[in-house]
Write a protein that binds this DNA or RNA. Structure first.
Lengths: 140, 140
DNA sequence: ATCTTTATTGTAAAAACTTGCAATAAGGAA
DNA sequence: TTCCTTATTGCAAGTTTTTACAATAAAGAT
């Protein structure tokens, strides 16, 4: 509950409002682990704020992502999961067993810069999910 | 219609079957441009094969992607679009106007190798969609 | 040609996600 | 405090995507 408040000044200064729905959702993101589905977030946050609805969860997660507080990540097919945007990292998901690890952004840094100078596009998002095969699954 | 047949031997040798549904969908992917939504594919392929259903389209696109014939790409939020997997490239989508360009895989090649050796994961997918801001939108 | 096996499809229903719009309430002004 | 503005929410309905399972048909064997 209190942890969402930490982000209140930042949001308010951008002209956004502090609502109990947003606080409840931030609380879940802070304390319920990583890569949560919108449904995970909905069910957990509902306990704090029972009148919460699913459209609000979808809209809020998107809102938090757009403002850099939450990080959306791909979870197979076209599905999105969310986590707090803390340290800057990417994911590699094993397409066989679903296991996943993090990759520091630093490793991709120079590639990003090359891509920006080549393409002319700027502010390229600093999060990507890659799909590969993990060492365990490679054995079999 | 005929263009799908080009892939028939490849599929058959893997133990898969050649069905008119698959041929119709491959035909659409070959001749209807890039990054099509499943719905685009459904509506176009239906003309060739009117009894085609949507679940079949979703399953077939996923099937083609898994076998390297089609390339799935992210189109904002969690949505997937598909195109034939011809030359090896990635996409950068402008998150303001939606415009997009291609990036040659070669540019990312060394980063992929670094990532594989660091993480132990192998066969990391060779397609990613990045989101950034295009030169046009940067001006304003 | 016909039979057999089983990969693939259609059906129907469910689950996941989105949208438009009217009602609500956050936060600044009086 | 009370009022006002408008960002945000809930509602209800729509669209998109997935799933389970029985029916179908592709391809090899007879």
């Amino acid at each position: 509950m209190s942890c969402g408040l930490a982000y209140a000044p930042q949001l308010r200064s951008l002209g956004y409002r502090i609502t109990p729905q947003r606080m409840a959702i931030l609380h879940v993101l802070c304390h319920s682990g990583k890569h949560l589905t919108p449904r995970d977030v909905y069910q957990k946050a509902k306990k704090d704020f029972p009148t919460l609805t699913e459209p609000t969860v979808y809209r809020t997660l998107e809102f938090l992502a757009k403002n850099g507080l939450a990080r959306p990540m791909q979870a197979g097919k076209g599905r999105l999961r969310y986590e707090m945007a803390e340290d800057d990292h990417h994911h590699i998901v094993c397409r066989v067993c679903g296991d996943e690890i993090e990759v520091e952004h630093e490793l991709l840094e120079s590639m990003y810069r090359k891509m920006e100078s080549t393409s002319g596009y700027q502010r390229i998002d600093s999060h990507v999910t890659f799909f590969g095969v993990c060492p365990e699954c490679l054995k079999t």
